[in-house]
Design a protein around this nucleic acid. Structure first.
Lengths: 217, 217
DNA sequence: ATTAAATGGTAATATTTTTTACCATTTAAT
DNA sequence: ATTAAATGGTAAAAAATATTACCATTTAAT
């Protein structure tokens, strides 16, 4: 028979973590509505009783899973990217890291599930946004504010600049990723995309020369 | 007793339409996984039998709903926007129309549901994308190609230009809309957003003057 | 007129899922 | 040693849901 009974001192959180890991994996594979608690409990080798006493039910478990992976997001993106060097190179470096983060299959999938269930879990959606995307946005906003002080950028609200740069980075590709229509991009694609977007963002796409006059010579 | 029996000639599609309308409304309110067929049938004053004979089940009904509203998308956006006038004004006009379309509550919600269920309905996600976002993208792509011929824009792949412009338009706001964290923007906000985005897209944000030299005079 | 098609209403059936309960086991606490 | 806490396993009870079947009714088709 598989081990059971009260856990040893210091091991109280083992089954809790195992449960969260398993639930995370299964939610990714099945979404929220299509996954039964029994499946989770069986896979995690945990009794229904433990599941209910620890999380209170399916909604509580889902919340705990989302909160935990929101926390992971924080550390992974904003903090360690220094945004140093020339403005263009700093932005490209940031873009590379950002794209790498938001295109990871797990990140895409968990976002998709949360979007689908956001009406049922409004608080979770708020927490997720504040922990993840909003912190990234604020981080980049500060960068633009600094660079404006140094005269590198035009005088547009740095919040708008950060918003627009991040949105341009997401691009059509992330929309297709979200719908499951494209594979995860590799390093090469990400690099090209980061440079292309950054360049266009900095210089715009209006021709310097003005329109070609037909019939002129 | 409520009317029943075989429908009159020419009225065969009435109950089918009523069913689709009701299902659409209820899917919007409850999502896919949280809505029972019985609820739909009762609200639409339709028997379970009709539901099954017409759509085969829940998945078939959902598919029919999504397909129908994908079709509505097509006519609403791409076709009637002529993209004429000066490049900037043409883009602003397009932006206005595009933002109006993608921020409508129903559009946001149905997208959210489809994203959440895209893993379970990969074909539906494909159809939806091809009917909606992809056609818009191609439409705008042609515009940029024409304008490049006239020398108004720099020589960047028009597909990239269209992609970047649409992505910039979506902006952080649409992400928050998708998560249910913001109300639908009004005309004034949309107008401001369309102009801001278009201007930044055309001119970029790099300062013409170059960085301010500290200590120089 | 008769037959067949399609329907609404009801309900029966089967399946799935949630939730609660019980028992033996293991360890903590005292 | 004894008691309490927390667990795994099983399953029972309860609820929700999907699916199918049947009946009376209305109209089409012939």
């Amino acid at each position: 028979m598989i081990k059971c009974g009260r856990p040893r001192k210091g091991e109280e959180l083992l089954s809790r973590d195992r449960l969260l890991d398993t639930a995370f994996k299964l939610f990714l594979e099945n979404g929220y509505g299509n996954l039964s608690l029994e499946t989770i409990a069986r896979e995690a080798r945990v009794s229904m009783r433990t599941l209910y006493s620890q999380f209170g039910g399916k909604a509580g478990l889902f919340g705990a899973v989302i909160r935990r992976c929101s926390d992971q997001f924080v550390t992974s993106l904003s903090e360690d990217s220094a945004l140093e060097g020339s403005p263009e190179e700093a932005l490209v470096a940031f873009a590379r890291q950002f794209l790498h983060g938001i295109t990871r299959p797990d990140a895409v999938r968990i976002r998709a599930i949360l979007i689908g269930e956001s009406l049922r879990f409004p608080d979770l959606a708020t927490q997720f946004y504040e922990q993840g995307p909003q912190r990234t946005l604020l981080h980049l906003e500060k960068f633009f504010a600094r660079q404006q002080q140094a005269g590198y950028f035009v005088a547009i609200d740095p919040h708008v600049l950060a918003d627009q740069f991040l949105s341009a980075l997401r691009s059509e590709r992330s929309q297709k990723l979200q719908l499951g229509l494209e594979p995860t991009p590799d390093e090469v694609e990400i690099e090209a995309w980061a440079r292309q977007t950054t360049s266009l963002f900095l210089h715009g796409c209006l021709a310097d020369t003005g329109p070609v006059k037909i019939g002129s010579d």
